[in-house]
């Protein structure tokens, strides 16, 4: 079986997986949409984007989150910082700590985005 034949086969797999819009055996072409990613809100584990109150030093992050092992802090501009933790307590805990500290304006997961070519016959790589 050639690679391109495999492509057709795998698209049928995609159409049959849970979450697919239509079921198997419908005779749909391999272009039928693959299942939607089953992890809405996919995020980079342990990585958060923090917005500090203007004038606040990034050192504040160490005092708040060092208990989880602060791997790195990168300035993104506009008082935004990408923070990577060695141990990920999860978004709820990270946000709970931020809510109790006036130096932090907002914190959110670093959500994953993908290029959006259609998956076509195999593979996702896109939404």
């Amino acid at each position: 079986m050639t690679a391109r034949q495999w492509c057709g086969v795998l698209a049928m797999i995609a159409a049959c997986l849970p979450g697919a819009v239509a079921g198997c055996g419908t005779g749909l072409p391999p272009w039928h949409p693959r299942p939607a990613p089953q992890a809405p809100g996919a995020r980079r584990p342990g990585t958060y984007v923090v917005t500090l109150v203007p004038g606040t030093s990034a050192a504040a992050l160490a005092s708040i989150y060092s208990r989880y092992g602060l791997r790195s802090v990168t300035a993104l501009g506009h008082d935004h910082y990408r923070m990577v933790l060695r141990q990920d307590p999860g978004p709820e805990q990270v946000q709970a700590l931020a809510a109790g500290d006036r130096r932090i304006q907002a914190v959110q997961p670093d959500f994953i985005y993908r290029a959006t070519p259609a998956p076509g016959i195999r593979h996702f790589g896109a939404d």
């Binding site: 990585t47 935004h80 959110q108 959500f111 985005y113």
Partner: peptide
């Protein structure tokens, strides 16, 4: 803002 696999994150896209 997207890597060789076509993937990126909020932080890279916003930048």
């Amino acid at each position: 803002v997207l890597d060789a696999s076509g993937s990126g994150t909020t932080s890279s896209v916003v930048q």
